[in-house]
Design a protein around this nucleic acid. Sequence first.
DNA 1: TTGTAGGCGTTATCAA
DNA 2: TTGATAACGCCTACAA
Lengths: 324, 324
Amino acid sequence: MEKVTIATVAQRAGVSRQTVSNVINTPDVVREETRERVREAISALGYRVNQAARQMRTGRSRLIAVRIEPARDGINGSVLDRFLHGLTDAAGLAGYRVMLYTADGDDAEIATYDELLNAYDLDAFVLTSTHHGDPRTSWLAARDVPFVTFGRPWGAPETHSWVDIDNAAGTAAATEHLLAAGHQRIGFLGWPAGSGVGDARREGWHRALGPWGPVGEATDGVESGAVAARKMLQNDPPTAIVCASDSLALGALQAARELGRECAVIGFDDTAVARAIGLTSVSQPLAEAAGRCMDLLRELLDGHAPSHPTNVLLPPSLVVRQTA
Amino acid sequence: MEKVTIATVAQRAGVSRQTVSNVINTPDVVREETRERVREAISALGYRVNQAARQMRTGRSRLIAVRIEPARDGINGSVLDRFLHGLTDAAGLAGYRVMLYTADGDDAEIATYDELLNAYDLDAFVLTSTHHGDPRTSWLAARDVPFVTFGRPWGAPETHSWVDIDNAAGTAAATEHLLAAGHQRIGFLGWPAGSGVGDARREGWHRALGPWGPVGEATDGVESGAVAARKMLQNDPPTAIVCASDSLALGALQAARELGRECAVIGFDDTAVARAIGLTSVSQPLAEAAGRCMDLLRELLDGHAPSHPTNVLLPPSLVVRQTA
DNA sequence: TTGTAGGCGTTATCAA
DNA sequence: TTGATAACGCCTACAA
């Protein structure tokens, strides 16, 4: 099968190459009859625009890049994967493709931006896992590279569009669910203060509860969660615990079982583990978040760039199962 | 910052563009002194080869494509994600990038090949989830598109290179572990016959056990696994069950608990769920599998194409936890 | 060992 | 409304 180029199509339709190009890119400028003839030729030949050539002229690649976390395992590792799936779907629908890269740390990631931008003329980036003092956004902004973040710009000036999950609303909903079920002493098991996401999740619990309840702190993980939960359950036992992650929730469940204590537990992220063991958990609308990121990117890329950056805050939902 | 092209570098180094190109692509043909001068100019300017332009000349994009499963959740969904992580790492090391696509069914996937090949000049594909009567491999082979599969070509002629996990060895190791622990009645809980992977996992159990033991069949999932396990445990109770997946294993665990039966359980895939609940499970070396796929691809792409396709069969390992 | 000419497939510009 | 021409950045072939 010979290579089909715009010239092949032009010849078959009896027009110039430019006219074919016009049919593809600015159809309204071509007379209807001609347009139809060219379209027939295109589909008869199975012609497809060559992106590399187009890119060379236009400087746009229709490629967007996302970092994939290094091969790593864990209960919560799947959250970004689910976002990635959604983004690939949404990008495909919009005529874009997703290119993956890995980077160990912010500086390495910035070096990768430089490379990808030069070598592949990437159209845009989607950043995940934003955090306080994140150097990536300012680097990109300084170079006028289009990007959106999944995660708000913690502390940084809000100069770009972002999509985020309303974490506080999630733990607030969990807490309200427990209050409605009659619980009064509701504890919170979360991460050490300082991470934006973790602080927001604690804040939601506190907001819904009113007064403070027992608080436990642990780095993420089943083991450390169990240790912290055990302490909570011994000192000042709550009848329910809202947790900042499913891993911590699993630890809390273990601790309660060991101590023979009845204790309702709610996790966060609605991971496969939660589904598997019947853990009530707060679910993030990751596919929707990805779709919104793509929407914002299209605004940026298709020229209709809004003068003000847009922010989207998506509410999570509570999935009630057996543990609460 | 102006765009840095090969011409910029040439000017700065006081040589022709061609000499710069030679330094990049065939350094040994350039006099050392000149080479050094050009290299200095390259790094001083931060020059990077533009892939689109190179691709236009060479027809090679240094891009490989992999399908990402549609946004879907489940205990086993993470297996392919982990493979993807490994592949992105390995590709990056080899100077390639991974492009993602989604496709609903084999035919849609083949249509996507056609598009990606025409539009992006993809260098190669990595196929996952191979199965009996898989039309994808023959389509690619007929067009001389380089590809490897992660998963052997079930039944199809072995005309391409592949990497696979020795599933039978995994369940055999699990069974031997149980035998060594003194178990004698060891059952198997697997998927309906017909899926290559599932059959191999059953085969490994049978091979290690010698005589047949109790067998249960269920489509993958915690619920259906629990139903099938309940039946096994009531009729003809084994003291241990080897399962074809962590989901089924979880179901088996539930069934045993409900019935108040002591029963060792071993799962397959070593998912986050297994780690979280202490389920002994067979672990696939996914990062290594991805690395091997990349190795095979490089052989194919870098011209040293071996006359015979290469096959790599990787042994899984048993991760012993509390359930067996 | 280095330089020159030409073209990969597309689109922007401008003329017809 | 359509077509001719040039250019994007690079590499291959060939000449010097």
